[in-house]
């Protein structure tokens, strides 16, 4: 078996186990830490597919910033151990897992049957580094230019939103500016 295919299976197993850990861990901190491992797995899959830049960006933004925010929130809110949502060996927990999984599976199968992946241009092959970062940059700045500029506006909107949310009573600064 080719090594990149083997690596994919290892990474997929890591992602799935961590994802199950996210939803079934008792302590909220363990959930957040399993999320970090899931993000690592996804970054590894990107690296395996030949997109090292996206893999590194995944770690920087998700594992290094978003999940840190989650961890900080969990720590400061001091969430008590809730009763476990998935009691082991009970019918209700089996149903709680099986029905959403079935729904997701139906959606994904429908999507796969409607898009013909084999003829997509630039379909990713496993192995070496297929798309160099320079080609990615060329595409980003020419074909997707509008999206690129729109992202800066979107981030501005989020900044304004975050600050106005923090301005509610008890926030960083009370009263008008």
């Amino acid at each position: 078996m080719e090594s990149s295919v083997l690596l994919f299976y290892v990474l997929a197993a890591l992602i799935l186990i961590s994802a199950v850990g996210v939803i079934s861990a008792a302590n909220a901190i363990y959930s957040a830490l399993c999320l970090v491992t899931t993000m690592f797995g996804v970054a590894g899959v990107f690296l395996n597919l030949g997109a090292p830049f996206i893999g590194a960006v995944q770690v920087i933004v998700y594992a290094g910033a978003v999940v840190v925010l989650f961890v900080m929130i969990v720590m400061l809110l001091d969430l008590k151990k809730k009763e476990r949502p998935l009691q082991s060996r009970s019918v209700s927990s089996g149903i709680k897992v099986a029905i959403p999984a079935l729904l997701v599976g139906i959606v994904v199968a429908a999507a796969q049957m409607s898009i013909d992946f084999a003829t997509q241009e630039g379909a990713a092959q496993s192995g070496g580094f297929l798309v160099s970062t320079k080609e990615l940059a060329q595409l980003l700045l020419s074909k997707y230019l509008f999206a690129f500029e729109a992202i800066s506006l979107l981030i501005l909107v989020v900044i304004v939103g975050a600050i106005s949310l923090a301005r509610s009573p008890g926030g960083t600064h009370v009263g008008p500016q």
């Binding site: 933004v61 910033a65 840190v68 925010l69 900080m72 900044i159 975050a162 600050i163 923090a166 960083t172």
Partner: peptide, 12 residues
């Protein structure tokens, strides 16, 4: 809440 705000601004 300043710590949360720093974390959110860091993401952005």
């Amino acid at each position: 809440v300043k710590f949360y705000l720093v974390a959110i601004l860091f993401i952005l």
